[in-house]
Design a protein around this nucleic acid. Sequence first.
RNA 1: GCGAGUGUAGUUCAAUGGUAGAACCUCAGCUUCCCAAGCUGAUGACGAGGGUUCGAUUCCCUUCACUCGCUCCA
Length: 492
Amino acid sequence: MSRNQNRSKMDKIVSLAKRRGYIFQSSEIYGGLSSCYDYGPLGVELRKNIKETWWNDIVTSRENVVGMDSSILMHPKVWEASGHVENFTDPLVDCKQCKNRFRLDKGVHKFKCTNCNMKFHIKEGQIGGRKKYRECFDDLTASEPESYVNSTCPRCGKEESIILDKVACPKCGAADLTDPKQFNLMFKTHYGASEDSAHRIYLRPETAQGIFVNFANVSNAARAKLPFGIAQIGKAFRNEVTTRNFIFRSREFEQMELEFFVRPDASEKWHKEWIESRLEWYKKIGINEKNLQLREHGSDELAHYAKACVDVEYKFPFGWAELEGIADRQTYDLQQHIDHSGNKLTYYDQEQEEHIVPAVVESSAGVDRTMLTVLADAYWEDEANDRVVLSLSPQMAPIKAAVFPLVNREKMPEVARDIFEDLKGHLPVEYDDSGSIGRRYRRQDEAGTPFCITVDSQTLEDGTVTIRERDSLEQVRINKEHALQEIRDRIN
RNA sequence: GCGAGUGUAGUUCAAUGGUAGAACCUCAGCUUCCCAAGCUGAUGACGAGGGUUCGAUUCCCUUCACUCGCUCCA
């Protein structure tokens, strides 16, 4: 497909999502808030179904995985231990000339002496400049740039005479830079009514740390034995530099994370198992496997704590993109919290008769990305029948069935309403008697409803109704008393 | 964050320096015995804030949002 066609497919999904009540832009009446989205009546059902199938697959159906739900606000030291504070405090600048962005300390720092006008610069940790000036230094290996400010000039010997003249772009050499900016992906807020910095805390940028800090609590309470996992679904917040592609990357999002604790020597084996298991899950919720692939991180893109990481990717209209990362994090996380908190987050291995720090295999998936995947994968245009269809798997579909009277005459609406009333306590269903029957079928097709039950004149005679399947348009007659069971059977 | 582009009913599009039309959707009624039929009627928009002007949806500025390309993505 060409780019134009790809783009228009995303546009169509966005507009369908709004029209049918899946996804709205946040704060729309005030002009919208960038990258934040609200989920409407169908959206919230779809999200619930995604989360339920995940939870069922990861927690309920496994003996050795338990769930938890930690608070979004946590002690600030959690993020010092995890590395989230430290890794994102470097000031960054942009070169106005070549648009390069770099850490300020990576810029070319140009110094000069206010007394003798000696000049030198620091680039990539080396002192540079004219030969006659370089010779004034015993060693050309540079210290931190800040340490030269107000230092003694090595040429004329005058104290406190060196000043920082300018900082230039290491790429193009221009000294035309923006003011340094602090980039930290964590949202900051104040804890308590007082706004002094002592009470600064963060909205969690991932749910995983809530699991790690509860490692001892949960493993004791659950009497867990290795290998075992702790799972959590919850919101996380990141001040992303760029947000793009509808709900794909947003600043507020929901994660489904599993931290699976294993003996360190077994992490590789479990990493492989979870990769398979997670890929299967996406197929199970109805994603076309041709649109799924695994991608292993190269050593250059691995996070500092991870030994290996494999992404599950989906072929979106805008290209292949990451749905989930499955990482072998080794003992990094628990060890960091052991070091920072002083608590013994270890496991006593009965067989080896020793305390060990378990390694962890993490599966980190996004609810919102899964939702976009489900919608994009289900969307198609049935030109033969002139309709737009969301072929959601019955398990994912927000509305499982709709009930119609074929026409609004005789007793058909009453009979149809009775069937609807019987179903509605058990399944999400809709009743509709407006317009023509064809219009009502189309409406449900677009919303992704897999089944439509129609009451016609034969129903009044023998108590049977038609049940129509969304994708094939096939209809069969069943006894109206069996409608609930029939739909349940077809969902599973 | 930088550069380019785009903002008119729910959606897709018109028109205009004198405050806006349509189609589809939605709603109500009639009709309709199985796939967006028909008839009648109704609701509904110039993203926001300034400026120029007698008058701005239209021109200018700012801002917000979206799209694309960079950049970023523990």
